[in-house]
Design a protein around this nucleic acid. Sequence first.
DNA 1: AATTGTGAACCTCTTCACAGCT
DNA 2: AGCTGTGAAGAGGTTCACAATT
Lengths: 227, 227
Amino acid sequence: MTSAAERDGDTGGRERDQISLSTIRRLSRYYRVLETAAEEDLTHISSNQLAERNGVTSAQVRKDLSYFGTFGKRGLGYPVRELRDEILHILGMDHQWPVVLVGAGNIGRAMIDYVEFRRRGFFIVAAFDVDPRKLGISYKGVPVFPMFRLPEVMQTHEVEIGIVAVPALSAQRVCNQLAESGVKGILNFAHTRLIVPPGIRVRTVDMSIEMETLVYVVNKNGSFPLD
Amino acid sequence: MTSAAERDGDTGGRERDQISLSTIRRLSRYYRVLETAAEEDLTHISSNQLAERNGVTSAQVRKDLSYFGTFGKRGLGYPVRELRDEILHILGMDHQWPVVLVGAGNIGRAMIDYVEFRRRGFFIVAAFDVDPRKLGISYKGVPVFPMFRLPEVMQTHEVEIGIVAVPALSAQRVCNQLAESGVKGILNFAHTRLIVPPGIRVRTVDMSIEMETLVYVVNKNGSFPLD
DNA sequence: AATTGTGAACCTCTTCACAGCT
DNA sequence: AGCTGTGAAGAGGTTCACAATT
């Protein structure tokens, strides 16, 4: 367990004590703009352009990037392709990530269909479900297995990431099974807070909460930024 | 247009200048705990209990609630049912919200299937799609209409909230159509930043970003809280 | 004795502003 | 002249700690 004491060195960059979640999320968005810019054969891009297309300030862009190194040229801006690849590396998206999906319902299938996902280097090696009617058949090339095969499949494909797309009541059980099979990160769509052993990271996407915050701002004219 | 100048009065509470997005999201979570507590016939609950079940501090809970009024009794805690209803009111969830859904693909159908959604007072009055094969038939009681009927249906049902569950390339167009039909808030599942006229609020749920942040923390042992 | 409500301290993230390169 | 990189200032959100209340 290489604990969080890898401050400097590694990427050759001056990685800061603690990068914020917001910075990482923005990096992910900068990447998209850079992807487009690269397709348009733009060679350089300024923090300003990057900022405008993301609804943030240019200082924010420069600060975010500065946590990881110095990629720009003063007077010129940032080299598009280079920065794009750099961000890819920072995010850890410079290689493929095998993923298991638990729950072959609508959300599960939506994840399988999600082209952007595959394009980003995630590939779902298998789905798992308890519903016998879903087993055996494969959806868009993704086989659907019974739960008991989870540990085996995860080991074989060296899977570290799992998606939980089951009803709230089964979510914790599934989460435990993933944990036992050595998962490191879970994307949780269930309407529940998952309890996990230390070392495993969970990101919950809860559509009710998103809708409720939306309703709040619509209703009360709340004026904070939602994105 | 009742602008954001309704600081005090209204709920009889001392509504603060600006409530943060985080506070609203937490409120939404407190509500869930209170719902459960009410089912268990608990009459009072302390900020501590509320905090523990949400992974926050008790001071945070008290501060969050204090923005909207004083609901607790010192030495006793908060009255469960009363606080539950109060939060429901604050969030604007004390009545039903008709919603239109654009895109009857997997994510769209997942939203229709999402029981928690209906239970919270959102009901999808209709779905819209461009695929002729999907039109006419209804999914779980939700009719699927062609796009041109959007304005009419939104007017009839006085819909203020729309869900965008179409591919990235169509998202902005759909968003414009929603805007023209008088939408106030949009929940966007497309992998794009939507540009909207002022006054319309957009909440984007981008699964790629969620996965990428997850990968970052898994990969780099990032240690910030993900939830 | 227990627990709230809240000003003040603290911490974290964002923006400013400008020196330093190209 | 243009634009980055960054220390310092500013804003915003969280936690502390304690008086007030039941």
